[in-house]
């Protein structure tokens, strides 16, 4: 087996090229002043101080609130679905999981434009409501439209990762709980739920991380004024051209996510010990 160890080398070089170097560059930008000189750096904490201004702080708070809400909605709606799917016969299960992934076969931009068509003031839904004599409701460019876009886009990840842990769970645990006197509700909370927690946490990560840093969906469904942290970073790099501030925000976001992931992991471990 020893000679296989060398096979890791190209991979290492590759990861240094595409992960480590850009990260270092972001770090460098974040701690330096804006300027055109390529080889002279002036170090500063100004970029981070600037972020502490309430306008920017509000953006990150709003992003986290939105990300958490989207994750909770995906979890509450996705768990029952994953649970029901896992109770079906094996071939039906694979078919249903396939159905869950069908929307992601279509390009995300296209899907988002489709939502715009459905939700806009003179879109399909409002037209139908008009036929029923109901006044048009503004749905586009609101928290609602952004949330809808995020949830629909990310739900499959939640469902699939919960389904994976539910479907590989040994059915005899459930029978054992039943046998020992647990009714179906008790069995669910004391056994099924606890044993599916790894899948739940996995799903939470897979939904929360993209939700908090997304910028296409908020931009299209939330309108130009809708600022999430992803949009902020994007605008700093693309339109404002302040790469240093953009890098600082990226670092702050990365740090916040890391801290959150640690917290979630702690909850996972504690949850298991407490039981």
């Amino acid at each position: 087996m020893k000679h296989f160890r060398h096979l890791i080398k190209p991979y290492l070089i590759w990861s240094i090229l595409i992960i480590v170097i850009p990260l270092l560059l972001i770090g460098l930008y974040a701690f330096t002043e804006e300027g055109n000189a390529v080889l002279t750096f002036t170090f500063t904490l100004e970029n981070f101080r600037k972020f502490a201004e309430s306008t920017y702080l509000n953006v990150i708070i709003k992003s986290f609130r939105l990300g958490i809400l989207a994750t909770v909605i995906c979890l509450i709606a996705g768990y029952p679905l994953a649970y029901i799917i896992s109770k079906q016969a094996e071939d039906i299960q694979s078919f249903l999981i396939l159905l869950v992934t069908v929307p992601s076969w279509i390009n995300m931009l296209l899907r988002t434009y489709a939502w715009m068509n459905l939700l806009s003031d003179n879109g399909i839904i409002n037209n139908l409501l008009g036929l029923l004599g109901i006044d048009p409701i503004t749905m586009m460019y609101t928290d609602f439209s952004v949330m809808l876009g995020l949830v629909c886009n990310l739900m499959p990840f939640m469902i699939i990762s919960i389904h994976t842990s539910l479907s590989k769970m040994d059915h005899s645990y459930i029978e054992a709980a039943n046998d020992l006197g647990a009714n179906p509700v008790q069995t669910f909370w004391k056994v099924t739920w606890v044993l599916s927690l790894p899948g739940v946490l996995n799903g939470v990560m897979l939904v929360f991380l993209p939700a908090i840093s997304s910028f296409v969906i908020p931009k299209l469904l939330g309108g130009g004024q809708y600022m999430l942290i992803g949009n902020l970073i994007e605008s700093q790099f693309i339109s404002v051209g302040n790469w240093n501030f953009g890098s600082a925000i990226s670092l702050i976001l990365a740090a916040a996510i890391l801290i959150l992931m640690r917290l979630v992991k702690r909850i996972d471990v504690m949850g298991r010990q407490e039981e």
Binding site: Y173, E175, L180, E275
Partner: peptide, 21 residues
Amino acid sequence: IPPYRREVNTVFQKYALFPHL
């Protein structure tokens, strides 16, 4: 009568001990 209300207990073939406890 469902299993959880029967005065019967089972030792399962592969034991089925709860791994989280």
